[in-house]
Amino acid sequence: MFRRNGVLGPTLPVAGDDIARAQTTPVTLRLPAPTGQHQLGVTTLHLVDESRRDPWNGTVRELMTTVFYPAADVADYPVAPQLTHAAAAVFSTLDAVHLHPELPDSGVNWTATQTHSHTGAPALPGRRPVLLYSPGGADPRTIGTGVAEELASHGYVVVTIDHTGEASEVEFPGGRVRAIDIPGDPRTDPRLFRTMIDTRIADTRFVLDELAKLAAGRNPDADARPLPENLGQALDLRRVGAYGHSAGGATVAEALYEDRRIDAAINMEGYLDYMPEEPDQEGELLPIAKHGVDQPLLLLGTDGFRDARIERSWSAMLDHQQGCTRWEQLDNATHWVFTDYSNMAPQLQDAGLMSAEDRAKLVGAIDPADSVPAVRNQVLTFFAEHLSR
């Protein structure tokens, strides 16, 4: 399914024409079930960094994270939705109309999608490797739920991070929602791009600081909300990995270079360079691509998003011999196949809410029966190899 550094593997046929049929009730989308042996608990942490100002609105920097973990007992704990009503109200407007125009602007009940994780369930005893997830630019952390649950079901504690101000929406305790308010487009503004990456790296390091407090028996939640039983004792911060998509991929790769607490990282289609100051120039390589790193780094890409910036910045990374960097490619796919859209887009097409063309733009024509396990297996195998000590 994946091909290594440009060595062609088998591809799948392009899907047929989209099915057009009228919808009488909103569609409920499903997330793929995790395959690991563990039942899952989930909680959120509201984290406030008093030492930093938010670059997008000038207030103190505050973040929301979700923690997925193996649970000891889930019988009396409710299953968490992927999106709450407050978050879905913003998501359904911003993502469908502005951020992801391929998505339908109606016909989906975004609040009805259930995860496989139980809110507040006690954590299973035993310390476990910790994984951080950084989503792509404008995407909320909730669109990385499927991979996070898969990892947690196999024995990891997974912490997904919203980078406030550039995520489509972030819901804080009490129902307060902050919509995206970054003042421009970092894909076309080099200064904004640098600020975004620098802020994301600082967010990642701060979350690690707060997890250290949690592992030491303190409650880092800014509102002092009760924590699930045994959650702090479940964190083994001697074994930390990070993975991210797009801008999140660049974030975790550079965080791997800058923060020795991170042992291994997966970059899912994030550029490893800054935006050029002029259109006809090449952007400066990120320090990790410029200097290399001695920790393991996996580069996961697709044939549908393999452009000149990927070729140049990822090849520079591979040129360094001191580390353990590998490049894998998923064919018949494109950029958002690494997110929950890989499974959702085909459901939307089947319901007549997305055309075959828009599905291909979002995730490619690959069948989710192939793409979902392919991505999961790459991520699981990598972290099992490098965080198993």
Rank of each mutant, 00 (worst) to 15 (best):
V240L: 13
G16Y: 04
A250H: 03
W110R: 00
P296S: 11
D367I: 01
A20W: 02
A360E: 14
G283K: 01
A316R: 15
V67Q: 11
R261D: 11
L237C: 06
L124Q: 14
L272N: 03
L299S: 00
N377E: 15
P276W: 04
Y257C: 05
S313P: 13
P129W: 06
Q114L: 14
T113L: 06
P32L: 03
R359T: 03
G364S: 05
R238D: 14
S117W: 02
A360V: 07
N343P: 06
F206Q: 05
A360Q: 10
A356M: 04
V170I: 12
V48D: 06
L214E: 07
R389C: 13
F193Q: 14
E166F: 03
D280T: 11
D17A: 12
R187E: 09
E357T: 13
A33K: 08
E277F: 00
N230H: 15
P287M: 05
Q281T: 03
I197C: 02
T65N: 05
P34H: 04
D221N: 12
T93A: 12
T11L: 01
Y271E: 05
F91R: 11
G248H: 10
A351D: 02
Q281A: 10
L299M: 08
E62G: 08
R176L: 12
L285W: 05
E278Q: 14
V97I: 11
T251R: 03
L318Y: 01
I288F: 01
W314I: 07
G217A: 15
Q322S: 09
A215R: 11
D76N: 15
I310W: 01
G107C: 07
A212Q: 13
F2R: 09
R218Y: 06
F305N: 15
D340W: 05
A289P: 00
P190N: 10
A351F: 02
P34A: 02
A121H: 00
P140C: 07
